[in-house]
Design a protein around this nucleic acid. Structure first.
Lengths: 240, 240
DNA sequence: CCAAAAGTGTTAACAGTACACCCATGG
DNA sequence: CCATGGGTGTACTGTTAACACTTTTGG
């Protein structure tokens, strides 16, 4: 694909050396605990914004730009996720959200960040805060976070991520990444309510749920959920 | 906001100098001509991919990272749009699409690109190809583009942009950025059909159109559209 | 008069909302 | 037996898809 003509042009281009921004990925990691939407926040240990809450994230490994081309953006996000949460590789849904590059968003200089959001099943969430030291990372209620106190423009990133999952909830099966492998009808409803922030008629939700069963999106799983009240049937999401 | 502690940390950080990627913006510029969705393509004059078709785009001006912080990503996209199309500043709808940063996507080295899509009203579209030399920029039918022949990963970017506007068409008023300031019912319908790629029942479309009028989203404009057949009423979009 | 597009109306199917009600269980 | 959440049913309403139909124009 690269001929001699190309090679010359590439050399000329390399010599030019435009100024380049630093490139990071930031992660908005969600889970649902106690029927409440939570986001994972890190308390910063270094300046700037020392001791402030921030989203987890870090620099993209770019390599030397010659033999070593570095890692893909998705890989960088996945790597940061594993580093910051200790969760196994495929256990989490991860999707690019938006890229924030406002001049002045980082006092250290020009830093462009590619934001991702992640969805962690609640049965894995406790492993996160146990794995990292408890002072460092914490699941914070999205509704109660003091957004003005977040580092950098992370309040904007969080707000956009919340908007995104609210919107996607209606047409994409993202709720299944926020419940355990098997779940009852009301557990899935609790996730919808936590994301939307408002109550959902149990009967009507059940109808939509049944339609998903009929469509083969969900299937019943053996066993019952024992809750101290009447036991509920449990289901599982059918991946395709 | 920046104290002495910060300043030290910032100096230390600057000294580190992680390798950085080059950062570009690429534009997927759409219009609708002859009831067909078109995208603006540029014939490349330099290697790599010399003589191949590519999306318009260019480097983000980053500044020196000290006194000069450079331009915002949106501003860079807007600037490239003006440079490549010659259209006035506010005449075009512009929105960030996705960021592509696969290692190896550019043979010159590690180049991360923030892709934007733009919607150009058809009455302005001819100015674009007239302004730039005709060999250089061209409106190409999205349905007939030889995607395998596009430079870099621009086929992926184009595909994602088409998906995006198809999806947004159902819940966002983007079609109004692809018709002249005043338009008839069937002109707006033609835009929907061009984006969706399938016919739309004229009667049912008219019902949805009427609802938008009732909701105050659209209002009737004086005059009629003379077409050689029965004249049609014209409307305008009410910006809020 | 005819072709073609503008514009009106009707119907059946379907999905969402609100609400009433029965069932099973642990305390 | 009773409070609580699991689970069923129903009447009403609004939206959509499909299609038949009338009206107005230029040629």
């Amino acid at each position: 694909m690269i001929d001699a003509d190309d090679a010359d042009a590439i050399d000329a281009w390399r010599a030019q050396q435009y100024p380049r921004p630093a490139l990071t990925v930031d992660l908005v990691v969600f889970t649902v605990l106690d029927a409440d939407l939570k986001v994972l926040l890190i308390r910063r240990g270094e300046a700037p914004f020392r001791h402030a809450w921030a989203l987890p994230g870090g620099f993209v490994r770019v390599g030397d730009g010659l033999a070593d081309e570095g890692e893909d953006l998705d890989a960088a996000a996945q790597r940061e996720l594993v580093e910051e949460t200790g969760l196994p590789h495929g256990a989490v849904y991860l999707e690019q959200l938006y890229t924030f590059g406002r001049a002045g968003r980082d006092p250290r200089g020009r830093v462009v960040t590619v934001a991702y959001y992640a969805l962690v099943r609640p049965d894995l969430a406790p492993l996160v805060t146990a794995g990292t030291d408890a002072e460092h990372a914490e699941w914070c209620s999205v509704a109660h976070v003091d957004r003005a106190a977040l580092a950098f423009d992370h309040a904007d990133i969080l707000a956009l991520a919340v908007d995104r999952i609210r919107g996607k909830l209606d047409y994409a099966p993202i709720a299944f990444d926020l419940v355990p492998a098997t779940f009852s009808v009301s557990e899935l409803r609790a996730v919808h309510e936590a994301i939307k922030g408002e109550a959902d008629d149990p009967s009507n939700f059940r109808r939509r749920f049944r339609r998903m069963v009929e469509d083969g999106l969900i299937e019943q799983a053996p066993g019952k959920r024992i809750t101290g009240r009447r036991p509920a049937a449990v289901y599982r999401f059918v991946r395709r």
